[in-house]
Design a protein around this nucleic acid. Structure first.
Lengths: 258, 258
DNA sequence: CGTTTAATTGAAAGCAGTCAAACTATGTGG
DNA sequence: CCACATAGTTTGACTGCTTTCAATTAAACG
C-alpha cells in the first residue's frame, strides 16, 4: 500500500493541489505517528472533545456528523484514504462535530501540536493545508445546496456522481463503477431524507436506466445522463485535470463530465 | 468607524481567535487596498470567475450563494463587517460560488497575491487565517444540519439565534435585538424553503410569544426558549467567551445561551 | 396618490415521512 | 446441510409538512 511511511498518503493528498519542496515532504514524513485500526461505526473524535491528536486516514472510509436535539443526524462529509480528518479542529479548542469510521479503517495519529509546528515552520505546508481546507469548504457548500434545494432524485444522483469522481481520483473507482461504502440509513443522513425514501429513489434511478446496482456496487449506465439528472458539474471539487497523478486512475467515462 | 485603516477591522476579526504580534499587525495594516462601495444585490465574485482580488467587508452585509440548474438558489453563508469574504478562494483557481452584497456595502480590495505573500511570510497570519477558515467551516456544518434535518420552525429559530450571537459579537445587536438584513425571499434561500412558508413560520414564532418583530427588526421575548426551540447552542461559533473584546458588546440576554 | 415591490393569506396539490410488514442476505449452531 | 436469528432493504398504505398558485394587503417611493 505504501513504500516507507503511511504518511506518504497525506503527502500525496496535499500534493494534488499544491507543490511541496523536498524539505516540506521530509518534514511531513518524519512526523511521529502511531497506527491504529478501528472497526466500522467507531468514533475518531466526538463533539465537545478536545482534540489532542490529528488522524490521517490510511485505509477505509470515515465521515463527519452532527446530531440534532431530536436525535436525528446529518452526515456532513465523507472521507477517504489520505484525508487528514482532524485538520478541521487544528486551531480550535473543542470539536463541534463527530468524526466516525464508516468501514473498518486504519488511521495514523499524529500529535496535534506537531502539525501546528509544521504550519508555523513550513509555509508550503501551511499553504497546502489551507488549499485542502478550501476544497473541503467548497464540497460543504455544494452539500448545502444538495440538501437545501435539490429533490431526492437529483440529490442522490449528485452524490453518486461526486463520489464517483472523488473515488476515481483516488484510484478507488473504475470504469465499472465503485463500491458504495454506505447503508441506506447512512445515505439518508447524507441527503437529509429517510432510508425508505432513499431506497425508493435509488430504485427509480435504476428503473430509469441511469445506474446499475448490485448490492452496494454502483455503476453508471449513462454517465453523462446521470450528471445531468444529478445537476453535477465537478468544478467545485477543484481537481485540476492537469495534475499527472490524477489523469491515470481516473476512468474515461468519469472524466467526461468536465 | 476606524481610526487609521479600514483593514483594522480585518486585524480585529483575526485577533478574536488568534494572537497576532506587532509585526503581523503591521504587515496586515500596510497591505495595499482600494475602497469600493457597492449597492445591494451586486456580485463581489461570481462562480467560474478567477479571483484576482480579495475583499474585506468594511460595512454592510454580504452572502455566498450557489445556484442549481433549475434556477433555485441556496444561500450558504452570511458575512458581516470585518469578514474577509474572498479567503475561500485564496489558493483556488476559479470560484465555485457567488459572493453577493446583501445591503449597500463598502469593501476594501487587496490583490490576492499580497495576501498569499503574507501567508507565506508570517506564520501567525497564516494560523489566523486557518482558524478563521475553520470557524467558517464549522458554521457551514451547522448550516447543513439546519437545512437537512430541522423542520421550518426549528431551522428559522436557529438562524435567528445564530445571527443574534454573531451580530452581538460584532456590536451589531443589542438587548433590544437586531435588524435582520434580509427579505423573506433571501431567508427562504438560507433555509431551503419557500418565502411563503418562511412568512408563515415567522408568524408562528411571533404568535407563540417567542420573538417580537417590527418590519425587519427582530427581538427575543424569551431568549432561552428560542434557543430551545431552535436547537441552538453557540459552541460551534467558537467565540471564546474569554476574549475581552467580545464580552462587552455581547448583550447579557444573548450570552446566556452558553 | 398612483405605482411598484415585499409580505401575507388561503386553498389545493405533492413530495417525502411514518409505520408496519415482507423480503433478502448473511451467518450461526444444531 | 438446514433451521433460525439478525441486520439491512424493500414495499404498501396513509399522513403531513411544505410547495404551488393566486389573490390580497401593506409598505415604499416619486
Amino acid at each position: 500500500m505504501f513504500k516507507e511511511s503511511p504518511l506518504e498518503l497525506l503527502v500525496h493528498k496535499l500534493e494534488t493541489h499544491t507543490r511541496l519542496g523536498e524539505d516540506d515532504r521530509r518534514a511531513l514524513l518524519t512526523l511521529p505517528y502511531r497506527l491504529k485500526t478501528l472497526e466500522a461505526e467507531r468514533f475518531i473524535l466526538s463533539e465537545g472533545e478536545v482534540p489532542r491528536f490529528s488522524a490521517v486516514l490510511i485505509y477505509g472510509f470515515a465521515f463527519r456528523q452532527k446530531v440534532a436535539s431530536d436525535g436525528s443526524r446529518q452526515i456532513v462529509s465523507l472521507h477517504m484514504p489520505g484525508d487528514p480528518v482532524d485538520f478541521q479542529s487544528l486551531f480550535l479548542d473543542i470539536s463541534d462535530h463527530d468524526i466516525r469510521t464508516l468501514t473498518d479503517v486504519m488511521i495514523a495519529t499524529v500529535p496535534r501540536a506537531e502539525i501546528q509546528r509544521l504550519v508555523r515552520t513550513y509555509p508550503a505546508i501551511s499553504e497546502a493545508i489551507i488549499a485542502h481546507l478550501l476544497i473541503e469548504a467548497s464540497i460543504s457548500r455544494e452539500w448545502i445546496l444538495n440538501v437545501g434545494r435539490r429533490d431526492a432524485t437529483t440529490a442522490l444522483a449528485h452524490v453518486l456522481c461526486e463520489w464517483a469522481v472523488r473515488f476515481a481520483a483516488q484510484g478507488l473507482a473504475s470504469d465499472d463503477g465503485y463500491e458504495l461504502p454506505m447503508s441506506m440509513d447512512q445515505l439518508a443522513d447524507v441527503l437529509g431524507l429517510t432510508p425508505v425514501h432513499v431506497s425508493r429513489t435509488m430504485k427509480t434511478l435504476v428503473t430509469k436506466g441511469l445506474i446499475m446496482r448490485d448490492k452496494r456496487h454502483i455503476s453508471f449506465a449513462d454517465w453523462t445522463k446521470v450528471c445531468e439528472v444529478g445537476d453535477f458539474n465537478g468544478l467545485y471539487l477543484h481537481l485540476q485535470a492537469g495534475h499527472a497523478d490524477l489523469r491515470e486512475p481516473r476512468p474515461r467515462t468519469l472524466s467526461a463530465c468536465r
